[in-house]
C-alpha cells in the first residue's frame, strides 16, 4: 500500500518537474509539489526509502490531522526499528533536536508540510 502510494507520488513529481517551467502560476506549482522532498537525512539508504514511504502513507491517511499522522509515523517507526522515535508534522515550526546519528529524516511533503522524524533515547 505504502509502496504504491509513494511511487504514485514520485511519478507525479516527475511529471511536475517537466511542467514546472518558469512562468507557471503558483497554484500549478503547488499542485506539482505533491511529492516527498527529503531535505536532510543521514539514514541508511534502505531505511530512508522505507521511512519516506511511512511518512507519505501516514500523512495521506490522515489528511489535515497532523497529530494522528505524527503518531502513526512514530508507531510505525518504533515497530520498524526500535523504540524512542519521535515525529513532528506541521506547516510551520522551529526545532532543535538531539538525535542519534544515522537516525534522522527531515523532509517536506505535499508542498506545505515539514516532517521531522528522529530517534533519541
Amino acid at each position: 500500500m505504502a509502496d504504491l502510494g509513494s511511487t504514485a507520488n514520485l511519478a507525479a513529481a516527475d511529471k511536475g518537474a517537466v511542467a514546472a517551467a518558469p512562468g507557471t502560476d503558483e497554484k500549478d506549482a503547488k499542485r506539482n509539489f505533491n511529492y516527498p522532498l527529503v531535505k536532510i537525512c543521514d539514514m541508511a539508504e534502505e531505511l530512508r526509502v522505507e521511512a519516506v514511504d511511512m511518512v507519505v502513507t501516514a500523512v495521506e491517511k490522515h489528511p489535515g490531522n497532523f497529530e494522528a499522522a505524527a503518531q502513526n509515523i512514530k508507531e510505525l517507526m518504533d515497530k520498524r526499528c526500535g523504540n524512542s522515535w519521535h515525529a513532528v508534522v506541521g506547516e510551520g515550526y522551529g526545532f532543535e533536536v538531539t538525535h542519534e546519528m544515522r537516525n534522522l529524516l527531515y523532509m517536506y511533503f505535499g508542498g506545505n508540510l515539514g516532517v521531522l522524524v528522529w530517534k533519541a533515547s
Binding site: 510551520g92 515550526y93 532543535e96 538525535h99 534522522l104 527531515y106 517536506y108 508542498g111 521531522l116
Partner: peptide, 21 residues
C-alpha cells in the same frame, strides 16, 4: 548523537521545492 535545528515554514518549503525542480 548530533543536534539539528531548523525552522519549518511555508516559504522555506516552497523555496526547497522550487530549487529541487
Amino acid at each position: 548523537q548530533r543536534t539539528l535545528s531548523d525552522t519549518v515554514n511555508q516559504w522555506s518549503i516552497y523555496d526547497a521545492y522550487v530549487e529541487d525542480q
